[in-house]
Amino acid sequence: MADLPLAEPTLTRSTLLRGTGALIGTIAAGSILATLAPSRVWALELTSLSQPDGETILSFAQVLYPHATLPTAVYAFVVRDLDKAAAKDPDLAAKVHAGCGSLDAAANGSFAKASPAAQLAAAKSIEGAPFFATVRGTCITALYDNPLAYAHFGYEGASWPRGGYLHHGFNDLTWLPNPPADASPTLGSL
């Protein structure tokens, strides 16, 4: 899990000052993800986005793809990916900054602190903007293509290391009858 933004909360004031900001949070003790992450406390150091913009993107991702019990740590991947991309691309950095501004404006103040209804309305109001498409597209890969999301949503990922699902439940569904052998033969020898 080398690319997770999860880390022990060891950031000191001086290391923090090297970046442009940091997002910090905690994974709930009961979450299955708590067992996967190296620590329940997570921190993401920003390298190009400002602290307020990082917080805006984090809230925006939660408005776009709301999952009641998905830990905020997973949404932080969206911020991580945009932060990385913006570090390499000044035009993107400017677009993200301006976009966060437009969300704040649409929410009449701080998008991150606005009510859920106001956030949803603000998001809808910028739906056609390129900034919207950029963040939305980043969400799709950042939110759903990582081991924490796999565990949360119940996708088991790579099966080759376990020898496939042949002996790991490929046909373990019991709430419907098994099809007859002519439609679905039982396995002979491989």
Binding site: F170, N171, L173, L176, N178, P179, D182, A183, S184, P185
Partner: peptide, 24 residues
């Protein structure tokens, strides 16, 4: 034929209930 997986079990049972004959 290959043994059917869980996804197939759902298809098969639904198809039979609807009255389809050619499902395998």
């Amino acid at each position: 034929g290959l043994p059917g997986n869980n996804n197939f079990k759902v298809m098969y049972n639904g198809a039979k209930k609807v009255g389809y004959k050619k499902c395998s």
